[in-house]
């Protein structure tokens, strides 16, 4: 029971207080570029949730059975002192690129409708910093179990999707207002994100 509570707490914390966009600025490029309409941002949001939830646990396995100091113990006692952690960037990004490619192929075969809806977003996700960022935070925070890593990944992805949908909704409404010309578009999107981030800071300190 307590385990479930901890996992739920982890999820809520990563959606609200430690939101990928508002607290760490990860995945900002696609966040700003794709948030013009709600429809496309929902598509991208779902794709990101999906990819982060799959890649974080896989990278957790990599970290714990391949990269970390002493992680290669299962090969025999002579490997105990091997520390491959300097290779983590390379391995993480390779895993992410491979999984994105794999997901793309599976989705294309199994669910062509979804594939068409996600369109160009799937390949773009390989270079979305939120995905690699989640893997690196997972490494830095040293999650103990694969369940924690999975829940962390899902929470981080969900938080990112939430952020992009909120911004897209506001930007859709803003089309009808008279904004100073130099601020139109990008400038305003930044200021809006800043204000949203201040609002999200209100969640900090909440514990469930």
């Amino acid at each position: 029971m307590e385990v479930m509570e901890n996992l739920f707490d982890l999820f809520v914390r990563n959606v609200f207080t430690e939101n990928m966009v508002f607290a760490y600025f990860l995945g900002m490029c696609s966040y700003l570029a794709v948030s013009k309409t709600v429809k496309t941002s929902v598509g991208l949001g779902i794709a990101v949730i999906f990819v982060i939830t799959v890649t974080v646990p896989v990278n957790w396995l990599m970290e714990n059975y391949l990269l970390k100091a002493g992680a290669l113990k299962w090969l025999g006692s002579s490997f105990e002192s091997v520390d491959l952690s300097f290779l983590s960037f390379l391995l993480f990004i390779a895993v992410i690129a491979a999984i994105v490619q794999l997901i793309e192929m599976v989705v294309e075969k199994a669910a062509p409708a979804l594939y068409n809806a996600l369109g160009i977003f799937l390949p773009l996700i390989a270079v979305n910093c939120a995905v690699l960022g989640a893997a690196l935070f997972m490494q830095e925070r040293e999650y103990g179990t694969i369940a924690e890593a999975t829940v962390y990944g899902f929470g981080a992805g969900f938080g990112w999707a939430l952020a992009i949908v909120i911004l897209a909704a506001i930007r859709e409404k803003l089309k009808y207002s008279n904004v100073p010309a130099p601020l139109r578009g990008l400038g305003l999107a930044f200021i809006l994100t800043g204000l949203l981030a201040i609002a999200f800071m209100g969640f900090s300190g909440i514990k469930i």
């Binding site: 508002f22 607290a23 760490y24 600025f25 100073p180 010309a181 130099p182 601020l183 990008l186 400038g187 305003l188 999107a189 930044f190 200021i191 994100t193 800043g194 204000l195 981030a197 201040i198 800071m201």
Partner: peptide, 16 residues
């Protein structure tokens, strides 16, 4: 963090 976003928004405003 939020002020970084707002400051960059203002920088864009000035540049444009």
């Amino acid at each position: 963090p939020p002020m970084a976003l707002i400051t960059i928004g203002v920088i864009i405003w000035i540049q444009r």
